[in-house]
Structure formats: C-alpha cells, structure tokens
Simulated scan of single mutants.
Amino acid sequence: MLDTNLDIAARYIKDGKLVAIPTETVYGLGANALDPLAVAKIFELKERPSFDPLIVHIADLDQLNKLTSGPDERILKLAEKFWPGPLTIVMPKSDIVSDIVTSGLPTVGIRMPDNKVALELIKRSGCPIAAPSANKFGRISPTTAEHVRKQLPDVDYILDGGKTTVGIESTIIKLTDKGFQILRNGIITQEELEQVVPFDGNSEIDKLSAPGMLKSHYSPKKRFLIADNVSSDLDRSKAGLISFTGNLEGSFKKVINVSKANDLREYAVNMFEAMHTFEDDKEIDVIIAEPVEEQGIGKAIMDRLRKAEYNWQQE
C-alpha cells in the first residue's frame, strides 16, 4: 500500500510490520529497531546478507542515550551541528539493541533524519526505527515512493513523502581516540566534520563495520559504466548518458543532465533517479555516467558510481 497516512504507518511499525519511509537521503525500509523479528523481515524482503548492519533512526537524544553505552561529548557536539541531518555515527551499543540490527558487532550506527515525515513517524511509533535503503540488496537506491514500489512490491506500507532532497545515503563516521574515521562518504564532507572533531586518517578501519562498505552496490540491472571506462567501440545508439558538464552528450541515444549549473549537490540529488529512468527505458541497453573530481561531495558521488559499476566491470 502506498499512502501518506502517518497513523497507519505508525500502527504497522508497532505491529512488527515493514514500512518504507521517506528521509532526506533515500527511502528507507523501516521496522521497530527493538523488535528482532520485525528487523529480520527487513533482511528477508531486501535479500540482504546478515553480515551487513543496519542504521537506526531516532527522533530525539533521549533515544540516543538508551541505544548507546558510555557518554562521549564529541557525539553531542556532532549532533548539535549536524542533526537532524544526513550523518550517521557508529558508536558502542547498549544491551537493548539486538545483534541482528548490528550484525553481531558491538557498535550501532545511529542518525536523526532531517525529514518531518520520518521524525513524526518515529515519534508516533514510540520506538527507534531500523531502516536500510528500501530496495533489493545491491540495487539502485530509491529516491521516490515509486522506486520503492518497483523493487519491493510486497512491502506492507509505503509512506509517500515525495522525492528525497539529498538523494544519496548519509555520511557514516566512527569515533576513535584520535578523532573520526569516514566509513562511507556522503553529502556531509570531511572538511565540514573537521570543524567539530579532528580527522583520524591513520587508524585502521574495521571492514564491514557499517552499511555501504562492499565493493558492489547501488547497481542497475542494465550494464552500467563510468564514462572514463567506456571503450571507443561501444554502441552509443543504445546507450543513455547521465550527464553533468554537458561535454560528453554527443552521439548517445538519450541524455539526462543531472545539473544545469554544474552543482554537485544536484548531481547527488538526481543521480539515482536517472539510473532508475534508464533502467526502465526499453530503448536503453547500457547506462553511462559522467565522473566528477573527487573533492568534497564528489567523493560520495564517485563512491556510488564505482560501486554501481563494479560487477559490470568484472564481466
């Protein structure tokens, strides 16, 4: 069911069902984070491997205190600066957080979404909500309710909040004795975070300690390549280009320009939607994406593009 009724969605969460929820980043597949059986349904519906931990979404700092063990003043400083917003902080979990949420890890990733619908749903549900992206595992992230319905038609309820405003998943960080590590790049950049906490570029990062750390992710069902990796003999008459600068648009069957002003934020907002559009287009056999410089938000964009391309590059 696709609708905008928060009371129905909250009742579904309380009853242990799954609700696709809008956030500012992408749509999430939500369940009561304190109900292990409900959380297990997320893994089942997404076909997500059990070793990939989930992010827990909260609406206030009281929930944060219940979900974590041990105070850290740096977390409060980061929360004051970036919450609500697209920042996930991985921190030691309390006993009320089930191992199924964290894939057996002693830490849990938590964020407070900057979306009024999501925040209100968490409040009405009376519980934190575990929510990875509302898509089949490894496939294109959903930025509209229709994207969710296309990939997860069996979800109990889809709460339609319109198109997401950020368009890519949150930045994920973990604090160390020396500062913070970036586990997944997002719209909040290293430079912005360094204004609050020092960057730790030396400590070893734990593998698979957060979502989105696998080599392959965000991938369309059709062949997907970054423009730099396209051979000269590619048949462009059946190719769709995700364009940014406009410099590569000649000879492609179709072009989607994700930004008229060369704005990286617009690229991030529109990138997954462009992938979905070409994936659904019967005239397109291969999707090509224009790369950007890996500075600031460009790091997050290139992270998504490389992971979307990874399996296609192996063929």
Rank of each mutant, 00 (worst) to 15 (best):
A145D: 01
T165C: 04
L175H: 09
A145C: 06
E194L: 08
G162P: 01
I172H: 03
V166N: 03
S170N: 11
G167C: 07
E192S: 11
D177W: 08
T189W: 10
K163W: 05
E169K: 04
R149G: 07
G186K: 03
V155R: 04
I187P: 05
I182M: 09
P142K: 01
K163T: 14
L183G: 07
V197G: 01
K178C: 12
G161R: 00
V148D: 01
E192P: 06
N202A: 13
Q190R: 15
S141C: 04
P142D: 01
F199G: 07
L183C: 08
L159M: 10
K150A: 13
P198C: 10
K174N: 13
R184H: 01
L193E: 05
I140P: 03
L175V: 12
Q195W: 08
T171A: 12
T189M: 12
E192V: 06
Y157I: 02
R149W: 13
V197P: 00
E146P: 04
I182W: 06
G201W: 08
F180E: 06
K178P: 11
I182V: 15
T176A: 08
P198A: 09
T143L: 01
T144G: 02
T143V: 13
F199Q: 07
D154R: 13
V155S: 04
V196L: 11
T176P: 10
Q195A: 14
P153E: 09
Y157M: 02
H147D: 15
Q190K: 15
I140C: 07
I173V: 14
K163R: 15
I182P: 05
P153I: 11
K174H: 13
Y157S: 01
P142E: 01
T171M: 13
I172R: 02
D156C: 05
G201L: 07
D200R: 10
I173R: 05
T176W: 08
A145F: 01
T144N: 03
I187Q: 09
T171V: 12
T143F: 00
Q190V: 14
Q195N: 15
G162K: 00
G167N: 07
T189D: 11
P198W: 08
L183P: 08
T165P: 02
T143H: 00
N202W: 10
D177V: 13
Y157N: 02
Y157Q: 02
E192R: 09
E191R: 13
N185Q: 14
V155F: 03
A145L: 04
G201A: 10
P198Q: 07
D200P: 11
I188A: 01
K174E: 15
Q151F: 03
S141A: 05
E191T: 12
A145R: 01
E191D: 14
I158Y: 00
H147F: 09
F199H: 13
T144C: 05
L175D: 11
G179Q: 10
I168R: 04
F199P: 09
K163P: 12
T176V: 10
Q181M: 10
L159A: 08
G186A: 03
Y157R: 02
E194N: 12
T189H: 12
G186Q: 02
I173M: 08
R149Y: 14
V166Y: 03
T176K: 09
R149V: 15
I158M: 03
T189A: 12
G186D: 04
K178I: 11
H147G: 11
E169H: 05
Q151A: 13
V166L: 03
